[in-house]
Design a protein around this nucleic acid. Structure first.
Lengths: 347, 347
DNA sequence: ATGAAAGCGCTAACAA
DNA sequence: TTGTTAGCGCTTTCAT
């Protein structure tokens, strides 16, 4: 029988035990642990000694139950999927700021499912998070009233909520998409395909608008555009573009409005041997885009900055900032790498 | 003055208030909220009514303070960086299982810094997580005794801890690296460069061993190998390989032992115009590897399976499984895509 | 500088 | 089926 498994499972030491061992009251232990003033150095030393000897770890949860501000030093982050590089970069930026303030982050994925959005927010509430950074897909955030009434600050990222009274940080979706499309038009394209996600997802809808904005400005009738929507993953995007490419009047250029969709489009172009003849601009950067042949031209987002701005806003609210809600738009950047500069074939 | 900001900040409703409104005792509310048996349907209905009308959300933290098992329904996950796709896939797999059990996940990044590993574990302890899934970089997990004494189950991922008494789930690092190297040798290479991370990182050390295993089996003297270590990001890897390629006796093949290192190597090869002449096999898959020219041959890990196996193990421990520690090795898979099949130049 | 007592919101144990 | 009381580990308040 291994020693490990039969080892006594000692329960967590409590502040009371530490106090007893150090020969002080619990409040003094509390003062020492929380670095409050007015503790004699010798007393503090005895307390730390007892802490070490009992391997004591404070229970922050119990403390927050009684603490005046009621804070749990905890924060909830909801993203499409923690597995998506866009979300990963945001998450990291949020964490980097949170950790400095000794705040822990609950991260959840919701796959753009309205029901899971609701459930995730309620789960965060039951855990008494101090604040939230949320991606939303619902047209109405019905839980928003609860949050406001409870005074729990929320910053929306990537998409804006129905209620403009909440802070938000989003990319310049419409303008970025228009810039991407205009870039293709400048290279002579008129027959441009739009590959995009479900239109109930705000970013997809806005990027579609930007696409149409650019067509309109160039006087290209909307009817010439080839629009495939509802593409929620790379495989769907690949199928959709493959079909368009095989049609009688295939597009000479493609605007893919999201990172996974771009990946699908790249596969479709490659399968059709069209990567050097059909132009492509993607919204949101993809890894190794610069090493492909041709390089993938993208309108890059700045997820790191989105996360940073959001968490900064959140901590400002937690510090008592009650100025009007800010709606931050993080600029996108067109990065030409080759695929977007393929000219249209002569008419 | 906007109505939103002046809105009354109503404090959280308590169970007591719900009980009062429903005209029942708090224990009855508790029973209803927790779906315990022995509550009349009519009573339950009145309670739910009160819950809705007060917008009540139970405080799980307060509950766990008194609950017999003391569980917080919370779990800590420590990874290199939540921004790395390898970690993202693991995280997602962990979350998918956790959410089914209504367990929330704290995710932290530690950048392979031993000090941050220590701090992260202590932060998790103060939050009273029920269990931990940890990546480690320390040679000794000095916090491990605390965890065992406290009876907090831990599953290590990606790297094994010094104490074999803990469960672990890792990739077949040594064998996978040997397979990658053997693959290059089979294609005629003898002068092979190894690009790897800091050797105090266990995975880097094991993959180096695998590399040497393969050289040894092929009778290639170690002295012929070009080894660059301490490469912790893509930029460092790129610089290191660029230097090797510019030397008098450049390698004819490269084994890069980690995803970021592979990305750096790809850039270096491209810059030197050597992507079609110098062979490359990477450890851990990289996004779009199949679309590069040539495709990137890799020994793919299965992060999704690592996460799934780890969280499964963890929940088993939480359910009382006290069988001996399991050390799971998740197989890797060599995926030939072109870069690893470039033959050695004639001697 | 220190400690005693009360109580945060909940669940356990027991009583009715 | 329901309610009452105590107490989880901590911080507050107020005393000394």
């Amino acid at each position: 029988m291994s020693e490990e498994r039969t080892a006594a499972r000692r329960p967590r030491a409590t502040m009371k035990q530490v106090a007893a061992l150090a020969g002080v009251g619990t409040k003094t232990v509390s003062r020492v642990i929380n670095q409050e003033p007015n503790v004699a150095e010798a007393t503090a030393a005895r307390v730390w000694q007892a802490v070490r000897s009992l391997d004591y770890h404070v229970d922050l949860q119990a403390g927050s139950l009684r603490r005046a501000d009621g804070r749990t030093r905890t924060l909830g982050l909801l993203v499409g999927s923690v597995d998506n590089p866009f979300a990963g970069a945001i998450h990291r930026a949020v964490e980097d700021t949170a950790i400095q303030r000794e705040v822990a982050v609950f991260a959840s994925s919701f796959d753009d499912d309205p029901e899971r959005e609701e459930l995730a927010v309620r789960a965060f509430l039951r855990r008494r998070v101090d604040g939230l950074i949320l991606t939303t897909v619902k047209s109405q955030q019905d839980y928003a009233r609860s949050l406001r009434d409870l005074g729990i600050p929320v910053v929306y990222i990537d998409r804006r909520p129905a209620d403009a009274g909440f802070d938000s940080v989003v990319s310049a979706n419409r303008r970025g998409a228009a810039a991407a499309t205009a870039h293709l038009i400048e290279h002579g394209h008129r027959r441009i395909a739009l590959l995009t996600d479900r239109l109930d997802i705000q970013t997809a809808a806005e990027r579609q608008q930007g696409f149409f904005d650019a067509l309109g400005r160039a006087g290209i009738p909307t009817t010439e555009a080839l629009v495939a929507t509802g593409l929620h993953d790379a495989a769907a995007a690949q199928r959709a573009l493959a079909q368009l490419l095989a049609s009688d009047e295939p597009p000479s250029a493609v605007f893919s409005s999201q990172n996974l969709v771009t990946v699908g489009a790249l596969h479709a172009l490659r399968s059709a041997g069209a990567q050097h003849s059909v132009a492509l601009v993607g919204f949101d950067d993809v890894p190794l885009a610069d090493l492909l042949e041709p390089g993938v031209t993208v309108v890059a987002q700045d997820p790191q900055e989105i996360g940073r701005a959001a968490v900064t806003r959140l901590f400002a609210r937690l510090a008592g900032d009650d100025s009007p809600a800010q709606h931050i738009e993080v600029p996108t950047q067109l990065i030409p790498r080759g695929s977007g500069e393929i000219p249209a074939p002569p008419a």
